[in-house]
Amino acid sequence: MSSVDSAGNDASVLYRVQHDTRYDYESAVELAHHLAQLRPLSQEGVQHCEAYQCDIEPRPEHLARDLDAYGNERLFFAHYAPHDTLSVRAVSLVRVQAPAQPDWEASPAWEQVRERLRYRAGRPSEPAEEFSFGSDFSPVFDAAAAFAAPSFPPGRPLLDAAHDLMRRIHAEFTYDPDSTEAHTRAPQALELRHGVCQDYAHVMLSALRSLGLAARYVSGYLRSRPRPGEQALVGADASHAWVSVWCPANGWVEFDPTNDRRPAADYVRVAVGRDFADVSPLRGVIRGGGRHALHVAVNVSPASG
C-alpha cells in the first residue's frame, strides 16, 4: 500500500521484505556461533520497520539481541548440537518514503567540510569524523584520492562533487558478478574497474575518505519488481549497497553509484557502518561442516495494509 503526495509521487510505500539464507554442509557442523544483521532500520523521515520476524532452523540453543555502535540490531545465535543445514528466514514490514531532497545550494565547498572534519586539539569533534578514516575494505590510499580529484576541483560544493564522483564510478566501472569476491577491497576493485554494488560502494568510500571527507556504507534492498515502464535496478533480488556522504547543511546524503542515482522510496535500509565488514547480513564461526553450498534469495514487494 502506498500514499501519494501532491506532486503525484509515492509519499510512502509499505514493503514486505523476505530474506532467505540456507547453508548445506558437506558434513555435520558440531558447534556454531553466528551473528545476523537483518532487521531494517527505523530512521525518522525515511523509513520505519513496522514488524520483523527471524526464523532459524534448526532452532538455536542460544539467542540474544543488541544494538551496535551505529544503531543496527544484531542477532546472536549458537548451535551446540550437530546439524548439516542452516536456514535463516527474515521477514519484515517496512514503511519507506523518499528522503527529503537536500538543499544543494546550501552545500559548502568540499574543502570547508574537510577542514571541519580535521582534528584540532581542544576543539569538539564532529560525530561524523569517525567515517572520514580508512577502514579494512575502504582504506585511504593515493590512487583513490587521484581518482576522486577530477570531481573535486577547488571550491566545488561538496554535494555537486559527490554526485559527479558517483556518475563517474557508474560510467567507468563494469558491473560484473564474476570479477570480484566478498572479501575484495577497494584498491583491487579500483584497479579492476569491475565488480558488484559492494565494490562500487567501497571505491566511492575510499575516494571520499582519501580527500578527508566523511562517508559511510549503507546496506539494504531494492524493490524487486519495478513499476510498469520503469527500468529494473541493478542489485534487486539480493542485498544491495550504496553510500551516504556527510554534509554539514544536510546531514547524511545518499548516493548509489551502481545505479547512478540517489536512493528513493524503492530502497530499504538495513544497516550502516564503515564498510561491508560492519553490516554483513550473516556471518559466523563453525567447527566442522567441510565444504558448503550457500543459497540466498531476497524479495521486496509492496504489501497490503
Rank of each mutant, 00 (worst) to 15 (best):
N9G: 07
N9Y: 12
Q18V: 15
L31E: 11
H34T: 04
L35T: 09
L35K: 05
S42A: 07
V46L: 08
E50F: 03
E50P: 03
C54G: 00
D55T: 15
D55N: 14
R59D: 12
D66F: 07
G71S: 02
G71I: 01
E73C: 12
L75N: 04
P82G: 02
D84M: 06
T85Q: 10
L93S: 14
L93D: 11
V94R: 07
R95W: 12
V96A: 03
A98Y: 08
P99R: 02
Q101D: 11
Q101K: 09
Q101M: 07
P102R: 03
Y119L: 14
G122K: 03
P127C: 06
A128S: 08
S135K: 01
S138R: 05
V140Y: 05
A144M: 02
A144K: 00
A145Y: 10
A145V: 05
A146R: 15
P150S: 08
P153I: 06
P154N: 03
L159E: 00
F173Y: 14
T174N: 05
T174D: 13
H183W: 14
R193A: 12
H194E: 15
G195L: 03
H202A: 09
V203C: 09
L205W: 14
S206C: 08
L213I: 04
R216H: 06
Y221L: 02
Y221K: 00
H240W: 08
A241C: 12
P257G: 03
Y267F: 08
G273A: 02
D278R: 00
R283Q: 13
R287L: 14
G288L: 06
H292C: 05
H292A: 11
A293R: 15
A293W: 07
A293P: 06
A297V: 04
G305A: 13
